[in-house]
Amino acid sequence: MIDKLKDVSLKKAGIFAAGVLFGTAGIKILSSSDAKKFYTNCTAAVLRAKDCVMKTTSTIQENTEDILAEAKQINEERKKESEEVADWNEEVSENFSEEMTEE
């Protein structure tokens, strides 16, 4: 029984020691100059990607504003045309009514 407890406690101590060793090695690796270069390059790539996305976004926004302006202009022209047609219909209708009452 005591042997089993010793085995378990030695196993746990070994796992703990391995964790400490791995953590220490990890910190050394992560703080090395090679790792810093890697982080710097990754950050630069992210910044370049951000610039590209921002350019695309502004282009899309400009195109959307142009489309909206053109759509409003088309609707104004159609409104004017429909008002002209309505005025013409009213005029024709009045002329027809006058002709019918004269006969």
Score class of each variant (00 low, 15 high):
Phe96Ala: 01
Phe96Asp: 00
Leu21Trp: 11
Lys4Leu: 02
Val85Arg: 12
Lys6Met: 11
Ala71Phe: 02
Glu102Pro: 07
Ala44Ser: 11
Val92Ser: 04
Leu47Cys: 05
Ile67Leu: 14
Gly14Cys: 09
Lys28Asn: 11
Ala25Asp: 03
Glu83Phe: 06
Glu102Cys: 07
Ala69Glu: 13
Ile74His: 04
Ser82Lys: 14
Lys11Gly: 11
Gly23Leu: 10
Lys28Gln: 12
Val53Tyr: 06
Ala17Met: 09
Lys28Ala: 15
Gly23Arg: 05
Arg78Tyr: 13
Asp7Glu: 02
Phe16Asn: 11
Lys6Val: 07
Asp7Gln: 05
Asn75Ala: 15
Ile2Ser: 03
Ser31Gly: 07
Phe96Thr: 03
Arg78His: 12
Glu70Val: 07
Phe16Lys: 09
Lys79Gln: 15
Thr101Leu: 13
Thr64Ser: 15
Lys55Leu: 02
Asn95Cys: 01
Ser97Arg: 03
Asp87Cys: 04
Ser32Thr: 00
Glu83Ser: 09
Leu47Arg: 12
Val20Ser: 09
Glu102Ser: 12
Lys50Ala: 10
Glu70Gln: 13
Thr40Trp: 08
Ser97Val: 01
Ser93Arg: 02
Ile27Tyr: 10
Ser9Thr: 15
Ala13Ile: 02
Asp34Pro: 10
Leu10Thr: 06
Asp51Trp: 02
Ser58Thr: 14
Lys55Asp: 02
Leu30Val: 11
Leu21Asp: 12
Lys12Met: 03
Ala44Glu: 13
Glu90Thr: 01
Ile15Phe: 06
Ala17Phe: 06
Thr57Phe: 03
Ile2Arg: 02
Lys79Asn: 14
Glu77Pro: 00
Ser32Tyr: 04
Glu70Thr: 08
Val20Ala: 13
Lys28His: 10
Asp66Pro: 03
Thr57Glu: 01
Ile67Phe: 12
Glu81Asp: 11
Lys12Leu: 06
Met1Leu: 08
Ala49Lys: 03
Thr57Ser: 04
Ser33Asn: 10
Glu102Phe: 04
Ala86Val: 10
Gln61Cys: 06
Thr40Leu: 12
Thr64Cys: 08
Ser93Ile: 00
Arg78Pro: 06
Ser82Asn: 15
Gly19Trp: 11
Asp51Lys: 05
Lys80Glu: 15
Glu103Thr: 09
Asp87Ala: 07
Cys42Gly: 09
Gly23Asn: 07
Leu30Ser: 14
Thr57Asp: 00
Leu21Glu: 15
Glu91Tyr: 00
Arg78Phe: 12
Ser82Gly: 06
Glu91Val: 05
Met100Trp: 04
Ser9Val: 13
Leu5His: 06
Ile29Trp: 07
Leu30Gly: 09
Glu90Asn: 03
Ala44Arg: 13
Leu68Pro: 04
Ile15Leu: 10
Ala71Asp: 04
Glu76Thr: 13
Arg48Pro: 00
Thr57Asn: 00
Ser82Leu: 15
Asn89Cys: 05
Cys42Asn: 13
Glu90Pro: 00
Ser33Ile: 02
Lys4Phe: 00
Ala17Val: 07
Asp51Tyr: 04
Ala17Trp: 01
Ala69Ser: 14
Val20Gln: 12
Met1Ile: 08
